[in-house]
Write a protein that binds this DNA or RNA. Structure first.
Lengths: 115, 115
DNA sequence: CTAATGTGCAACCCTTCGGTTGCACGAACT
DNA sequence: AGTTCGTGCAACCGAAGGGTTGCACATTAG
């Protein structure tokens, strides 16, 4: 429910590359920086940086297993971002308003709308 | 839903200033660049630029009335962005999965005209 | 017509940020 | 032990982008 959190989520998702990473991790279940970089036209360090940004936004969680660190998705902050959008759009679109209700009833996580 | 559209929406919402503008327009109903700039520590031209970015993302619509141009919210693209997030989160959170269903059943396309 | 208000456009700084290279450290495998 | 694989960190570079100033164009009031 903290505004800064929503802020970081949107900032993180604002970059197409990071959204691509989120998407990829979503389909793989989990992945390491080198794994992800293998299928991308960028360096491992670049991916690592983006993963750090995503982790800072709370969208992914890093877990060190032996000599590799696996990243998994932690989609809870997405709920907050969705709540923000639903809240803003509620005044204009009644269907989004209904969605906001849906989120408020526990879908998002610590779903307290408003920014 | 077109991927490029979602791209622009996230990019537009990625900036805190633009999100602030969206929020302000949401509460006011409609506003002009000078009106918005009056309550912000930035120039009118800066606001106008951000509004142009938001308009490009399809989040606001400009309407010239006499010598002033009023901006209103067109929250339709928000639905697409939410659908993207729900899609990604579906694999990890069944509740977000249910939300995805909800969006698929028609909440995504808005009543807003689009340019 | 003249003045004032509201915009739009263009050029220009300066910070931010994504990406790179290079190197050092920890962990597994032989 | 030594080697190899996977990370992390720091410095650097170039493009992108938000903000500014300045000016020209439209529209309304006197």
């Amino acid at each position: 429910m903290d505004a800064g959190s929503v802020d970081r989520v949107f900032a993180a998702l604002g970059d197409p590359g990071r959204r691509e990473l989120v998407r990829e991790i979503s389909t793989r279940g989990s992945a390491t920086a080198t794994e992800l970089a293998a299928d991308l036209p960028v360096t491992r360090q670049a991916v690592a940086k983006q993963l750090a940004a995503l982790a800072d936004a709370g969208l992914v969680a890093a877990t060190r297993q032996g000599r590799e660190t696996r990243y998994e998705l932690t989609p809870a902050p997405l709920g907050e971002a969705m709540a923000w959008m639903a809240n803003v759009g509620a005044a204009w679109d009644s269907r989004l308003g209904a969605l906001r209700e849906h989120l408020a009833s526990g879908a998002g996580e610590g779903s307290a709308p408003r920014t």
